[in-house]
Nucleic acid binder design. Sequence first.
DNA 1: ACACTATTTGGAATAATTTCAAACCAACGC
DNA 2: GCGTTGGTTTGAAATTATTCCAAATAGTGT
Lengths: 214, 214
Amino acid sequence: MVRIFIADDHVMFAEGLESMLAGEPDFEICGWARNAADTLEQVPKILPDVLLLDINLPDQSGLDVCKELRKTCPGVKILALSMHNDESYISAMLSLGAQGYVLKNTGKEELCTAIRALADGKTYFTQEVTDTMMQSLMRERKAGVAKEPPKISRREKEVLKLIMDERTTQEIAAQLFLSEKTVESHRAALLAKLGARNTAGLVKAALHWKIIND
Amino acid sequence: MVRIFIADDHVMFAEGLESMLAGEPDFEICGWARNAADTLEQVPKILPDVLLLDINLPDQSGLDVCKELRKTCPGVKILALSMHNDESYISAMLSLGAQGYVLKNTGKEELCTAIRALADGKTYFTQEVTDTMMQSLMRERKAGVAKEPPKISRREKEVLKLIMDERTTQEIAAQLFLSEKTVESHRAALLAKLGARNTAGLVKAALHWKIIND
DNA sequence: ACACTATTTGGAATAATTTCAAACCAACGC
DNA sequence: GCGTTGGTTTGAAATTATTCCAAATAGTGT
């Protein structure tokens, strides 16, 4: 028996969910809330197997609720419900520890599948959601790498690697058997090529262009 | 009519593919190759609509082929075929511009669906593949944030933000109406708290703990 | 050979960073 | 109220890092 808690402020939607899920013999609605405060209050007491959590609650964001519940009752599986197929929301929910994410226009069959997956310790994401994430992944990798990675010579790359490794100019010079002046010169070239003002910019650029993997 | 080129060194597999796809009225096999060199030679001449590209070619990696073809003939859609449901391969193919990725144990129906999706300008990824990527996303985000984010005071965070923004000590002091000494002091505290030796470490730590979003 | 880039190094001046100390303020508990 | 704690603030002196200006050497490709 899967015990389910519903957190959604749209009463009609929540009741629809309830009657829909009541039809499944292995599901049991063990509670509901229409705002974040109520959810945070009740869920730790009731400890449902699965929490259906609307992202858009009136008082706080579902994101905050998710974050909080991760700490207070990590055993409760969280299935995020949202109208939005928005990369930032999805990404945020993933990072905050939701085990699933389905859109509100999802049908009954799929919702049941998702709930059973979560109750079973697995994860579930609607096809649209995974598509969005893959698209976003492709975009970000393309945007980051493909453009015009400045041409860094191998010597410069060695220096950059050591700078990224938090070495001092002295250490770098010693390591590469160079004068400190030479290291400084390479550093200057790197600043120019990567369009950075200082070490901070150098590190950010190196990571951005994936010149150094760290 | 979708014109398809097959690049795979397993002749038996390739022929199986060919006869399988020949049954589809809207597909046409317009060529094939059993190694990377051949593929790079022929594809730019034949310009198929879709290239079925095995990741594991004998001479070069399919990854290199993909990268090369992105430049020489970007119009050709690339559907990566692989035995491995391996995050690093998938991620690499995505970044190199493949429009699809299916495992070799995929059935005929799904393969056809994938080919038609690509020919139609869309992308296609097998469910297993998207699962793997989502899992990996969750892991990396959790690993990055969850552990023990050092407690940074708000003033320190302000300074850190400006350091990340490539500002000089002078500029930071001016911006925050502080003495340079104070800024240096906050910087020292940040170095200690984040376990860094210098600015490079500071930037890496800040990004790692997601204290600053950049 | 000539053009070009990469690699290498100096001198002088400026900015950043470290090291060692300390005062001020606000919050918290007793 | 008083002391402790942590955050914020600042200073002097010494050490490094970095910038700005130049230039010699080596290797590559035309």
